[in-house]
Every structure is written in C-alpha cells, then in structure tokens.
C-alpha cells in the first residue's frame, strides 16, 4: 500500500515534510525492483543537496542505483542503522528504511512532487 501522507518522485523516492524538515527514502516499488539491498552509501551530514541531485547510492548484488533528493536542503541526520542493516530498506521501505533527514529550504520544491494518488497512477502506467 502506498502511504497517503507522503510525496513521491518519478524516480521512486518518497519524502515526508513536517515543520521545515523532510525525511527521505525509496518506495516499496523501488526496493522490490532492486532486490535484496546490500549497501547504502549515505549522504554526509551537513551537506547541502539540491532537488534532483544525487544524494545516496543503493546497491544490490547486481545493480547500483542512485537516489535523487526530492527536495533541496541540508542533511541534518542520516540513518546510520542502514550501514549494518541495509536490508531494512527491503523490509520497511517507508519506515525503518528511511535514508536521511533534511532541513528544507523555503523553496524546497515540494509542490512539484506527486501525491499518493498520482504516484499510484504513475506506477500503473509503468506496469503497462
């Protein structure tokens, strides 16, 4: 099920924005396409990232995929737990598998993202 309270990108990242902060991860669809995740290269704390900029790399045995930031902002926290347990992204992509927390700029670009319904339609199109 696609959580209703999140926003989504075409590259299958999700973002939850609350009080000027954003939590970012990859969607259930993305993790299932990747297969068992073996490694996550996390962004550096304190780094500024622009919207659509490469912020992390997620690796499975046979593929490496870039994760693009859904919003612009500064990285204030990363999910260190993924270093030892990258499988959390498979098991709990919308919760324990989050990648990082950003302090969002005013012009965070959130408006340009899809809501749950739009993302669901987008996935349907892809599957066709």
């Amino acid at each position: 099920m696609i959580p209703q309270d999140l926003k989504y990108t075409k590259e299958h990242e999700w973002v939850r924005v609350e009080d000027g902060e954003a939590v970012v991860g990859i969607t259930e669809y993305a993790q299932s396409e990747l297969g068992d995740i073996t490694f996550v290269e996390l962004p550096e704390k304190g780094k500024r990232i622009e919207q659509s900029e490469n912020m992390a790399t997620v690796e499975s045995v046979k593929a490496a995929s870039e994760v693009y930031s859904p919003v612009s902002g500064e990285v204030i926290e990363v999910n260190e737990a993924l270093t030892d347990a990258p499988g959390e992204m498979n098991r709990s992509s919308y919760d324990k598998g989050w990648i990082c927390r950003l302090r969002v700029d005013d012009a965070g670009g959130i408006e340009s993202l899809m809501d749950a319904a739009a993302y669901e339609n987008y996935l349907k199109e892809l599957k066709q």
Partner: peptide, 12 residues
C-alpha cells in the same frame, strides 16, 4: 561487491 566493477557500473 561487483557493483564496483565495469560490467555493472560501466562508466562509473
């Protein structure tokens, strides 16, 4: 750790 290698990562 083959994701480092050319047959997967190509130019990267």
């Amino acid at each position: 750790l083959q994701t480092r290698e050319q047959h997967i990562r190509r130019e990267k």
